[in-house]
Design a protein around this nucleic acid. Structure first.
Lengths: 343, 343
DNA sequence: GGGTTATGTGGTTACGTTCCCACAATTGTG
DNA sequence: CACAATTGTGGGAACGTAACCACATAACCC
């Protein structure tokens, strides 16, 4: 690269520069580079060449200011550290990129305030649309009120009409619990999240449905709910084991499944001889531990892809009714589940 | 919320609107809301109140256009799906948020072209600085040439002066291999990445250093290098086992460690009786499988935090010399390593 | 009491882009 | 040959903000 040896490029070059250099007007240069409007073949080529030669990069803020919308889609997930959200984001980005949009990814640590703050940033950036795993309804309301398309993914919370793509949590949970019931378990603990998330509510519902269908009454003392990041989760799970003597545990997300697994190992309980365990979300470790963990697998990246596709459609045709896409999970049976121990 | 029941908010409100509403000039309104410059107490309060009441959100693109810089730091990582990069991003975001910057996270799938494209977007957004896990040197050069501060994390590739924060790969690898040598292993396979990444080069160097210090010659046929995402990795590792008969494997990143582990399990080899395994990067599963995997742990989120802190410092005082921060990894010994089997 | 400073305010411009409009020249159509 | 459509170009006004500058008024100091 043979450029300015002093390395100081004080002024970035603008459209005006390349217009002057190519001997045309700014208007023509704009048309040539943006590809909209008439411009003669040779003139266009000359302009493209000079732009390239001078290393012209259009100023996104000027474009956004003028066009009143940017090409950066806002995405907010609950936890950047959790592989589930990582996969989701990867799926979103992939589809967005194909449609020539960029992704701005933000984590909100499951805090309503952080979610709202992120959304405020998106609004100020004139984002064309937002994808989020909602933690509260404020953010979506804010966006909807501003006319910004929103797609909720993984959970539905919005109190205003908006698109969503979620998995069939009821069915996933039902299949998991049916599997346990079929193995003879009658005392199945449920570890869930103590929020108003629909994902969690659905999983509880599936748990109850399976019991109802099988004619097994639900012992409410077997249900345990946790805040999103609960440092005392391990102890509480231990208490549950002592207090309610379950023969199986259904953990409604990958974090709780891990916690439960660690407690069981610490107690030296054998899977599935002493107790059975089913998780939700097929993360990496579930097939590496022995025995492998039976779990409800979700199409994580596909969830992201669908959300992005839905958003793009909505950006292009804002009119139509709010859509709800329901993806199907499926139960992956591994060694962590077996017949209920005979007392 | 009692707003426009028709839900159409065609024009977002601007500074001019709130100035008119409060009976001041635009200049005064700007000063009151941005907090720079004189404005009487009561006037300021009145302006803040009206801004709040009307739901004013400043237009980021106008601000950026005027100020020639935005508050959105660009971050590009190799793989959103990999928990290592997820942790890194979480650390970066946390520190950035505290300094009132936002993060724009992009994945590049370890493709030079995608990395460069992302960086071009950042430039067009007038990003105040960029943090990246570099895959090539083009991106950094581009940014440096434009006068945008860059911090490289995890690896150093730049051919231009720029800040970096990495871990001491040589030492991490050396300790891992010394551990194996001390256990009597003499045929230690190395699984690495076939790139010019300094992280990988450092790990190879540590491997060689440990051998040299112990006076053990290195059998080059034990060294294996893979592209970043190699679908044939499993087969190649299997070939290595057959061909070179190692008694231990040192896998230089978490992906390769997982691959190796799966191959060993598939072959029914017992850890550590038949063969020992050491990984790099202490991801979740390493202490869940049995036996646990001995591994070189890196302070992942801390890596992200330091990078962000360094970038912020550099943004505020551009003059000083490029800094290199070296974080120390440490070896976590678990059950996957044991004495070399007697032939 | 004239100068300096602190405290406040408003007019105006510039940032870089897009896009509407006006206008030329060329070609086609009755 | 008039009149329209096609092809092509350039002038100039926005978009919403920040910041420079000019200009008030009041307080303060020798």
């Amino acid at each position: 690269m043979s450029v300015d040896p002093l390395g100081n490029e004080p002024q970035p070059i603008t459209l005006a520069d390349i217009a002057r250099e190519a001997g045309t007007s700014q208007s023509t240069a704009s048309r040539a580079l943006s590809g909209r409007g008439y411009v003669a073949r040779d003139v266009r080529e000359r302009l493209l060449e000079t732009a390239d030669r001078l290393g012209y990069v259009p100023d996104a803020s000027a474009q956004t200011l003028k066009q009143k919308t940017s090409r950066i889609v806002g995405v907010v997930v609950s936890d950047l550290d959790n592989p589930f959200y990582g996969g989701l984001a990867a799926g979103v980005e992939q589809t967005l990129r194909e449609a020539d949009y960029r992704m701005m990814l933000v984590g909100d640590n499951s805090e309503n305030a952080e979610e709202t703050a992120a959304v405020r940033t998106f609004i100020s950036m004139r984002t064309p649309g937002v994808i989020l795993t909602p933690v509260g309804s404020d953010a979506t309301t804010l966006l909807h009120h501003r006319g910004v398309p929103v797609v909720e993914v993984d959970r539905r919370i919005a109190t205003v009409p908006c698109d969503a793509v979620v998995i069939d949590n009821v069915r996933g949970a039902r299949e998991a619990v049916e599997h346990l019931l079929a193995l003879g378990h009658r005392r199945i603990a449920l570890l869930g999240v103590a929020t108003d998330w629909t994902s969690d509510a659905g999983r509880v519902e599936g748990y109850r449905e399976a019991h109802a269908t099988a004619g097994v009454p639900v012992d409410e003392s077997l249900l345990l709910r946790f805040p999103f990041h609960d440092p005392t989760a391990g102890r509480r799970i231990g208490d549950l084991l002592d207090r309610a003597a379950p023969t199986a545990i259904f953990a409604a997300n990958n974090l709780l499944a891990e916690q439960a697994w660690r407690v069981l190992r610490a107690r030296g309980l054998a899977l599935p001889a002493d107790i059975s365990l089913v998780g939700f979300d097929d993360v990496q470790w579930t097939d590496m531990v022995s025995p492998g963990i039976t779990t409800v697998a979700q199409p994580t990246i596909e969830l992201g892809r669908r959300a992005a596709a839905l958003l793009i459609r909505r950006i292009h045709e804002p009119g139509s009714l709010a859509a709800l896409e329901l993806l199907q999970p499926h139960l992956v049976v591994r060694g962590s589940t077996g017949p209920a121990p005979r007392p």
